[in-house]
Amino acid sequence: MKGKPPLQVATDKGVRADADARIVARLAAGDMDAATELYDRCAGQVLGLARRIVRNEGDAEEIVQDVFSQAWRTARAFDTSRGSVIGWLLIMTRTRSIDRLRARQSRPDTTAESYTDTLRAPGPSPSDQVLSDEQATRVREALVALPAPQRQALELAYFEGLTQSEIAERLTEPLGTVKTRVRTALMALRQGLRA
């Protein structure tokens, strides 16, 4: 696949990476002010994502507590060169939210282990792994612009943690169709990163 344009590295990424490294270091040192700052900065997004997934206020608020608690306890092990703090918090949010959703729906865990909190791509330079605000906006716009069947398939995969087989069952569609829709949707969102 030659000729792909490289991802643009926005200049604000370096600044954010430094700020992230500082706040994580302070968290790891037990600085409660850093925890407060992090909460003020990120709780809105954490709660928003939790709500979106579990659709239940009480559960969503508990998830917020669990996520900040986990961040506080494991800050020392978080490597800021591998991603952003908000990215880390939101991955933890999704993991816990989907686990809770599954438990509520009595849905069996179809993967051998629940989602890892530390998905990372080996190799590329660290700043490529931090999403700028501008890119986040474009991904969201690309999501909204997707044809309905593709958006639905992707949202079921992402916000409900359904496997492609489960999606096929839920929508009574062939598995191959679902796979194509998810793949196409993801390609469109990747395009959004590069515009």
Partner: peptide, 29 residues
């Protein structure tokens, strides 16, 4: 893979942020 993980990041952030209730902050801290 890098791009896909960024897309995941973007999906996470596509959820509408919410103003958390004040009491939640106290509970968390």
């Amino acid at each position: 893979l890098s791009e896909l993980l960024l897309v995941m990041d973007g999906l996470a952030r596509s959820a509408e942020p919410v103003v958390p209730p004040a009491a939640l902050k106290q509970r968390v801290l």
